[in-house]
Simulated assay, not measured.
Amino acid sequence: MDPTTAPTASTRINLRTSPQAKALIERAAALMGTSVSGFMLHNAYEAARCIVADNDNLVLSQTAFDAFIAACEDPAEPNEALRALMARR
């Protein structure tokens, strides 16, 4: 289910803004045919989703990707430092 269209709200987010920003947001919401809350939730959610996706994705060059795949397919033998790290609680 899309959180921006959930039938019931479970938490609140409060914010303060200038009268000019409020008026602009109210106008935009009206033009979109939605409430201010719906407008703000939709736009904040989409912005948050994009930011999180940008930070959750790892982009590699083809050379780096090839090196990563090679390391996965033929891993190095564990050294003493790795053994010590894995033995930590």
Rank of each mutant, 00 (worst) to 15 (best):
Met1Arg: 10
Asp2Cys: 03
Thr4Gly: 14
Thr5Ser: 13
Ala6Ile: 01
Ala6Lys: 09
Ala6Glu: 11
Pro7Asp: 04
Thr8Ser: 10
Thr8Asn: 07
Thr8Phe: 08
Thr8Arg: 12
Thr8Tyr: 05
Thr8Gln: 10
Ala9Tyr: 06
Thr11Phe: 10
Thr11Gln: 07
Arg12Asn: 08
Ile13Trp: 06
Ile13Phe: 14
Asn14Gln: 09
Asn14Glu: 12
Asn14Val: 04
Leu15Gln: 05
Arg16Gly: 09
Thr17Asp: 04
Thr17Glu: 05
Ser18Gly: 13
Pro19Cys: 06
Gln20Ile: 11
Ala21Cys: 08
Ala21Gln: 11
Ala21Lys: 12
Ala21Glu: 12
Ala21Ser: 13
Lys22Glu: 14
Lys22His: 14
Ala23Pro: 02
Ala23Met: 10
Leu24Ile: 12
Ile25Gly: 01
Glu26Thr: 14
Ala30Leu: 13
Leu31His: 13
Thr34Met: 15
Thr34Cys: 14
Ser35Pro: 03
Val36Trp: 02
Ser37Thr: 15
Ser37Gly: 09
Gly38Val: 11
Phe39Ser: 00
Met40Lys: 01
Asn43Thr: 11
Asn43His: 15
Ala44Pro: 03
Ala44Glu: 03
Tyr45Arg: 04
Ala47Asp: 12
Arg49Val: 11
Ile51Cys: 09
Val52Met: 13
Val52Lys: 14
Asp54Trp: 05
Asp54Gln: 14
Asp56Trp: 07
Asp56Asn: 14
Leu58Ile: 15
Val59Ile: 12
Val59Tyr: 13
Leu60Gln: 07
Leu60Trp: 08
Ser61His: 03
Gln62Tyr: 08
Thr63Met: 05
Ala64Tyr: 01
Phe65Trp: 12
Asp66Asn: 10
Ala67His: 02
Ala67Pro: 00
Phe68Cys: 03
Phe68Pro: 00
Phe68Glu: 06
Ile69Asn: 01
Ala70Trp: 00
Ala70Leu: 01
Ala71Asn: 05
Cys72Pro: 00
Glu73Arg: 11
Glu73Ala: 07
Asp74Gln: 12
Pro75Gly: 01
Ala76Ile: 05
Ala76Asn: 03
Glu77Asp: 11
Glu77Leu: 06
Pro78Ile: 01
Asn79Asp: 15
Asn79Leu: 01
Asn79Glu: 02
Glu80Trp: 02
Glu80Gly: 04
Glu80Pro: 00
Leu82Trp: 08
Arg83Pro: 00
Arg89Ser: 11
Arg89Thr: 10
